[in-house]
């Protein structure tokens, strides 16, 4: 493993499998009466979140605590960032207190790479702008593998706001690297230019995209990142691209429906589907803890050539 986890782009196929296999062992810890092992005792992990987050932040914090690390959370709303401190200054000040790992979420793509260059601490990307969200893609792969026993050769369809989605980028990189057949679908205004370079197929018809899919992954419409009108109305979006029971029926009978959360019910996914028998959305959340424990454990060790 490298010093930091900045994106799926930096991981080899073997490293991805190592993380998934380690997560397999970590999951068992969450089922014990005492959900804690002493592995990262005396290590300090700083969770630095410049964007709102429930799932990812909680998941990282639980993962850190289960490994006995000392954790602290810096929510930007109550920090000196509001007084105008730059990311680099904040990072160097935190670094001066010698943490071992910094988990960063930031609205700007590449923020983690900046931190990685100026910090000795290990940096984990918990989502940077529209770039990557590697731990989400890893937990998605973990969930898929659990259900399908493999990733290679599966048809995975990703539907939604492709343009603003870091989850899409990380998943496209990871799933194609492991040999899945990835099809992406969304309104043409929300399809980023050059997306084919990820090795994915683009479809503008959700019915065609979902046809015979093994996995359907829905992406959130990220209204907070939208400056302009990308589609006429949320209702029209739902009618054209929303995941409904009728559309799920086109997929394979054992399809699983995924969503990285938070969901907009009635926009990208209907409640029947979100709460339905094919949905593994809450399993994704549960698996997130094990996957993040694996990443923390593997990064906290040595680095080859360090």
């Amino acid at each position: 493993m490298k010093k930091d986890l900045l994106g799926i782009g930096d991981l080899t196929r073997d490293e991805i499998y190592l993380i998934l296999d380690t997560a397999e062992a970590m999951r068992e810890i969450g089922q014990r009466p005492i959900k804690k092992v002493p592995t990262l005792r005396g290590k300090t992990v700083v969770n630095l979140f410049y964007e709102p987050s429930t799932r990812t932040r909680t998941s990282f914090e639980i993962a850190e605590k289960r490994l006995s690390a000392d954790t602290l959370n810096i929510a930007v709303a109550t920090s000196s960032v509001l007084k105008g401190e730059t990311l680099a200054d904040t990072a160097m000040n935190i670094e001066a207190m010698a943490p071992d790992v910094i988990v960063l979420r930031h609205a700007s793509s590449g923020a983690c790479h900046l931190l990685s260059r100026i910090c000795r601490s290990r940096v984990i990307n918990a989502g940077d702008g529209m770039h990557e969200h590697p731990t989400q893609a890893l937990l998605d792969a973990f969930t898929i593998r659990e259900h399908k026993k493999r990733i290679e050769g599966l048809k995975v369809t990703i539907v939604g706001d492709l343009l603003h989605s870091r989850v899409l980028r990380s998943n496209a990189l990871l799933l194609t690297r492991l040999g899945a057949d990835v099809c992406v679908c969304g309104p043409s205004t929300l399809v980023p230019i050059g997306i084919e370079r990820f090795g994915v197929r683009v479809s503008t018809s959700v019915d065609e995209a979902v046809d015979e899919a093994d996995v359907v992954m829905m992406l959130r419409i990220q209204q907070e990142r939208m400056q302009g009108a990308f589609f006429p109305s949320l209702r029209e979006y739902f009618n054209t691209f929303g995941m409904t029971t009728a559309r799920v029926a086109r997929a394979k009978p054992d399809v699983i429906i995924m969503h990285p959360g938070p969901m907009n019910r009635g926009v990208e996914i209907s409640s029947e589907v979100a709460d339905g028998p094919y949905s593994v959305i809450l399993e994704q959340v549960a698996n997130g803890v094990a996957v993040r424990m694996a990443v923390l454990y593997l990064l906290a060790g040595g680095v080859e050539g360090d």
Binding site: M1, L18, D21, T22, E24, A25, M26, E28, T39, L40, G42, K43, Y297, L298, A300, G301, G302, V303, E304, D306
Partner: peptide
Amino acid sequence: LMRHAVGPQPVIRR
């Protein structure tokens, strides 16, 4: 476990 700064972490099994 955390004493050696060099080399990858040992593999964990179930």
